[in-house]
């Protein structure tokens, strides 16, 4: 039976959906340390689509690729616990300050280095920026066709893929050749939970850098079980043009950041009493705002 080599692009993001009071410092700036780092939600939807292909075509493989600091290896392990076969952490100080274009350049170089594949699956967008740009930008750099806003992979064929897209105003079923890149939207099925067997298997999976912190006798584990090695790639490994990386490789620059400071308003304060609300409704009717 045909098997497929799938690359899932994922990002570790601060959980901006649950910004509590302690996430903002007194001066109005963001306290990033107070926000938990999570697997970007739509990238989990993407992983699930890849896992479903692997369910249907046993022997298919899923490699999770992420770019980020060392701690981003957490989401590679998270992906392994849910069924990914292995992962690559693309990490280098040279990538710091990258905008979406510099990020997609680095990712596309890593994918070129990785070798052959049938399909790239990624989330439509990440919750820390909501730009939805990296998927299409990677596809363009690799000269691959792209299908965005994917809700479901309907059929896999040796040379093509049939996909349902969910748009603002309806659905579209499209056929694309392989290899292609698809971006999966949040209306797609949620990712399955961690698998207890996979947790046992991969809980010690680590990058080279992470292993440096371990004691000697533990290290033999990684020779005996090569699947526990999470591959690390640096800028030098993926043969990049340094001018296209990081801040210097980013055409967009942040001119300024304004912290959101709200002025106290002159709003009318109303208590939730019958009398007050009665007056309010009268006022709104009299001013023809309602009614």
């Amino acid at each position: 039976m045909k098997t497929y080599k799938i690359i899932v692009l994922a990002k570790q993001v601060p959980d901006t959906r649950n910004v509590g009071k302690d996430a903002m410092k007194a001066d109005g700036t963001v306290n990033r340390a107070a926000l938990p780092a999570i697997f970007n939600p739509e990238d989990l939807n993407a992983l699930e689509q890849a896992l479903r292909i692997k369910d249907e075509y046993p022997g298919s493989s899923i490699t999770l690729l992420t770019m980020g600091p060392g701690r981003a290896a957490d989401i590679i392990r998270e992906g392994m616990f849910r069924g990914a076969d292995d992962g690559i952490l693309l990490t280098d100080r040279a990538f710091a300050g990258s905008d979406t274009l510099a990020t997609s350049y680095a990712l596309s170089r890593a994918i070129a280095k990785y070798g052959e594949f049938d399909l790239i699956v990624c989330g439509r967008q990440a919750i820390d920026g909501d730009t939805a740009q990296v998927g299409p930008q990677v596809a363009e750099k690799l000269k691959l066709p792209q299908v965005t806003y994917v809700e479901q992979v309907l059929e896999m064929h040796p040379q093509s893929i049939v996909i349902k897209r969910r748009l603002d105003n309806g659905v579209e079923v499209v056929k694309a050749p392989l290899p292609s890149l698809i971006t999966v939207t949040s209306s797609a099925p949620e990712c399955r939970a961690r698998n207890a067997k996979m947790i046992m298997k991969f809980k010690h999976a680590k990058t080279v850098t992470e292993r440096q912190d371990q004691n000697e006798d533990y290290l033999s584990l990684y020779n005996d079980r090569p699947y526990l090695n999470i591959q690390e790639m640096t800028a030098a490994d993926v043969e990049v043009d340094p001018k296209q990386l990081g801040l210097s490789g980013s055409p967009t620059k942040v001119k300024k950041i304004d912290n959101v400071v709200l002025q106290a308003s002159d709003a009318k304060r109303i208590e939730a009493t019958d009398a007050d609300i009665n007056l309010l409704m009268k006022e709104l009717i009299d001013s023809h705002t309602i009614g």
């Binding site: 959906r17 910004v19 903002m24 620059k253 001119k255 300024k256 950041i257 304004d258 959101v260």
Partner: peptide, 19 residues
């Protein structure tokens, strides 16, 4: 000047493309 909220809406960023 391309102005948009960012980072969960806690900041407003002004983005430019100088070159």
């Amino acid at each position: 000047y391309q102005i948009r909220p960012a980072f969960g809406g806690n900041i407003i960023a002004t983005i430019i493309n100088p070159e």
